[in-house]
Amino acid sequence: MSARVAAEGRPSPAFARVAAEGRQGPASVSVIVPVFNEASTIDALQDQFDRIDFAGSRCEVIFVDGGSTDGTRDRVRAPYRLIDQEGRGRGGALNTGARAAEGEVLFFLHCDSVLPEGAFREIGEVLSRVRVGTFGIRFSELTPVLMLCQVMSNLRVRFRHISYGDQGLFVERDLFFKAGMFPDVPLMEDFQFALNLKRLGEPIGMTRDRIRTSARRFPNGEINRLRTWVSMARLRSRYVKGASPEELALVYGNVR
């Protein structure tokens, strides 16, 4: 049984139950996807969930819309949920989804992400050891700068326990709220949440397989991509030294 079967009219509970062989995933998972003008990506993500192996977990998918004007809202199909964002920025969208979620595990995912096979089994494996985890990342394009960026991102998780939003963070529900949720700021919400987890002494585990994400936040051209990567690193450094998210957002530009 898949979520597509549920969408075609068969009765379904609050979570779509899916049978799986081998190691099971977590008992129940809420996948939370913030969207803003994602008409070009949302169908592909829903297609993934139509055919994905949920590894025995009960799963719901929640799209949190931040005011799309390109038809994104009309493309969300049953059994997936669409709710309106409260608060500002990506952090506000993620928190809105978390408050509405029913799952024991909250899985925050970008709309342009492609999950590996066995993603939910891997989530279960990581959460059998720690209370929060993330996927290793790889970009849909493989250029020297992007390859370096993904290597450094994966090393950062392994050795510093810092994960960013495009890596697919998953966390036990009670720990998420204990850590204070994502701060309602225009930038650095994922970075600050990771810092909050570190202060609580919660290490971030990482899956064996990688999530694939687009390089759309990077401009074309290797020199431009390198400049963007360096600029992001400088923004994080300034944030750690006390710069406000509002100030940094003005430098970063379009943070959606």
Rank of each mutant, 00 (worst) to 15 (best):
M1D: 07
G25H: 01
G253C: 04
I32M: 06
M232G: 08
L115I: 09
N95T: 11
P203M: 05
R23E: 15
T228E: 11
S231L: 14
V240A: 11
R129N: 13
M232Q: 10
A27F: 14
R208N: 06
V61S: 00
R99H: 09
R199Q: 13
G67H: 08
E247R: 11
T72C: 03
C111Y: 00
R173Q: 02
G87C: 10
F176A: 01
Y164F: 15
V29C: 06
A101W: 03
Y252A: 09
Q48E: 13
F170M: 12
N254F: 07
L197C: 06
A101Y: 05
D184F: 06
G71A: 03
F182Q: 01
V240G: 01
E8V: 11
S128M: 12
T207E: 05
I223Y: 07
I211H: 00
H161C: 01
I83L: 09
R173H: 14
C149H: 04
P79K: 01
E117F: 08
N220P: 08
N154K: 05
A78K: 08
D50W: 13
T72D: 02
S128G: 15
Y252C: 08
N224M: 08
S113P: 05
R216K: 10
L200P: 10
E222L: 14
K198C: 06
V132C: 06
I211N: 00
L148W: 09
H110T: 15
D84R: 10
G9E: 14
V185F: 02
F177P: 01
S28I: 10
S244Y: 03
R129I: 07
R17A: 15
C59L: 11
A55M: 05
F15A: 10
A249K: 05
T69V: 15
L142D: 13
S113G: 11
G180R: 03
F159M: 10
G242R: 12
R156L: 11
D65V: 09
N196F: 06
E189C: 12
M232K: 10
R138V: 12
F36G: 02
L82Y: 08
R156W: 07
V76I: 15
D112I: 03
N220H: 15
P116T: 11
E222N: 15
D74A: 15
W229P: 00
I123M: 14
P34I: 07
V29M: 06
A7L: 07
F54K: 00
Q85I: 08
S113Q: 09
V240M: 13
F139C: 02
L226N: 04
T134W: 05
L226P: 01
M152C: 07
L200E: 07
I223S: 12
R10Q: 14
D190P: 14
M188C: 12
R208M: 06
R238P: 03
E202Y: 05
A39L: 01
Y252L: 02
I52C: 02
R58P: 00
A16E: 11
G91F: 07
R129F: 12
I52D: 01
L197K: 03
K241C: 13
T134N: 03
P245G: 04
P245I: 05
P79Q: 06
F159W: 13
F191D: 02
P203A: 07
F139R: 06
L45T: 04
V171M: 03
S140F: 09
I83H: 03
G87A: 10
E125Y: 05
P144D: 15
P116V: 11
G66S: 12
F108N: 02
F120H: 10
M206S: 08
L94W: 00
A101P: 05
V145L: 03
V151R: 14
R81G: 04
